[in-house]
Computed example of a mutant assay.
Amino acid sequence: MRILLLSRYERMGQSSRLRTLQYIPYLKDHGVRTETASLFDDSYLAALNAGKARNPVTILHAYLNRLRLAPVLRRYDIIWLEKELFPWIPFVFEKRLLNGAPPIVMDIDDADFHHYDLSGNPMIRILMSSKIAGLMNLSALVTAGNNYLASYARKSGARAVEELPTVVDLARYPITGRNSGAEGTVTIGWIGSPTTAPYLNTIAPALRDLAHENSVRLVLVGSGDMAIDGVKPEIYPWTEDSEVDMVSSFDIGIMPLAKTPWELGKCGYKIIQYMACSKPVVASAFGANLSIIKNGQEGFLADGIEDWRRALRQLIRDPGLRLRMGASGRRLVEQRYCTGITAPRLLNLFRNIHSSN
């Protein structure tokens, strides 16, 4: 079986790395040849994360490179598409390009359709609001990162939809024996990107109060430079090589969210990373978080500042609770949220599509 993967980014892009690229070695071991053609390279994403403006020349060059793939699409058995071919280009152009192409497996792990259907620009809404739904309808299969995205795909008329969570490779997350129950300063940690870091401001009052009450440090990985009123965080860059060690250094992992339709498309990967490192979690009681965490078991779901204060205070003051919740979270990842579970599922999905064509 020969697959052409049309990913959005290279390995620096979290969605591309976790939703598609991390499965390629497993697929290869089982006789599937995957060739990758990313739309943007790591230098483009690094520039965005550094706060630089999007470069129109770079974008045009990337789009032309992808357009040149049109004549070779038929050489493959399956087209594995991350989200869309060309962001901000109307569906009619992508439909024409994909006409006569092999079966498409479309993967989505964000509510990208809300960039279009909830845009403040009426022309974008007119031209683009049904684009993602149209691509889903064209696809032989849509793999969705959570139930909200899967429901959208079904309502769009997708022929087949599978909910496939964003997961970790446990080979990269060994149980280290680091003691989250140790006495002394407690580390509250967050990992993400500059685009998700502003969510931390939604819980700034709780973080500020707890920092004044307790011996607490706040560690941010991948946020870029940012200020949180009344708190002085320690900020570290994200790298793929260091992320597991950084999360392992936390005592508590946090995932605040805003409450908008966009956040309903978030797949809770931070939570899964924390749990893979045996860390208790405090997360906003919203979206996919509700389906991952059982409140009081792997961590706490917080709805409002007082909930955040209460949950973090309880974990800060109870090392034993941190250990028990961390162990529970690790077991959950081993049972549901690792490539050992999802990779065989994905392989079978590809085989079924291939055999039916």
Rank of each mutant, 00 (worst) to 15 (best):
D241P: 01
V219S: 02
S139M: 07
L164F: 06
R54D: 06
A211D: 01
I341G: 02
V186W: 01
A211P: 00
L264Y: 08
C277F: 10
I59V: 15
S355Q: 09
A302M: 10
L4C: 08
W88L: 02
E162M: 11
P344D: 04
Y23I: 01
I254L: 07
A50Y: 09
D169W: 14
G304L: 11
S291G: 14
I108E: 05
P71Q: 07
G287N: 12
K279A: 13
K131Q: 04
V57C: 11
I252D: 08
S193Y: 08
K52C: 06
Y76M: 04
H115C: 04
R68T: 07
E213L: 14
Y9K: 02
V72Q: 14
S15N: 03
E334R: 09
H114W: 03
V333M: 01
D225H: 11
P280A: 09
S356V: 00
L257T: 02
S215H: 05
G326R: 08
G224H: 05
S284L: 08
S223P: 00
Y63G: 08
G145V: 01
Y199I: 00
V282S: 12
K28A: 15
I254P: 13
Y152T: 08
A283V: 01
V92Q: 09
C338M: 03
F250H: 02
Q314M: 12
A227S: 13
W80H: 06
I293K: 07
D77Q: 13
G329V: 00
D41N: 15
K279I: 11
A343H: 13
A311K: 00
L18R: 10
C267A: 08
D303K: 13
M1L: 12
